[in-house]
Design a binder for these strands. Structure first.
Length: 138
DNA sequence: CTTCTAACA
DNA sequence: TGTTAGAA
């Protein structure tokens, strides 16, 4: 199948499919026309890539994991031991990130609790108060 | 009409 | 990632 069909069936953009290829996650064949030609198994592969991406893994890690997984598996079957170690490390990174975010939230909580603007927000410089968080990209 | 590459937002 | 130009 060509890229458009795979994109529709997998629910991803053609842009993503070309990107996965660039990252070494997919290796479609080429037709004489230069068009990419994907096999049926590509659909399962893309689904696995999506699953791993949603697990927070980077394309580099996924590129290592994919070849360890049997093509016929619905999702991810029990895999190689060294792979499990890598996944455990990823889990640890997520745990660490959660703790950093929790710490950041605690600081914001204290700032919010402290600044009860009963006496209307008065600023000596008379400048306008900007809304905190504006332009935050999350 | 579909895809390709490359590049910009 | 989305999008787009220009070519096939």
């Amino acid at each position: 199948m060509r890229i458009g069909e795979l994109a529709r069936r997998a629910g991803v953009s053609t842009r993503a499919l070309r990107y996965y290829e660039e990252q070494g996650l997919l290796r479609p064949e080429r037709r004489p026309s230069g068009y990419r030609d994907y096999g049926e198994q590509a659909l399962a592969t893309v689904r696995r890539i999506q699953l791993l991406l949603s697990a927070g893994l980077g394309t580099a890690v996924i590129a290592e994991i994919l070849p360890c997984v049997p093509d016929d598996t619905t999702v991810l079957a029990p895999t190689c031991p060294e792979l499990l170690d890598g996944l455990a490390e990823e889990r640890a990174r997520i745990t660490a990130a959660m703790q950093r975010l929790a710490a950041a939230r605690d600081i914001l909580d204290s700032l919010i609790a402290t600044g009860a603007p009963d006496p209307p927000a008065v600023r000596r410089d008379g400048a306008a108060c900007r809304r905190a968080g504006a332009g935050q990209e999350m």
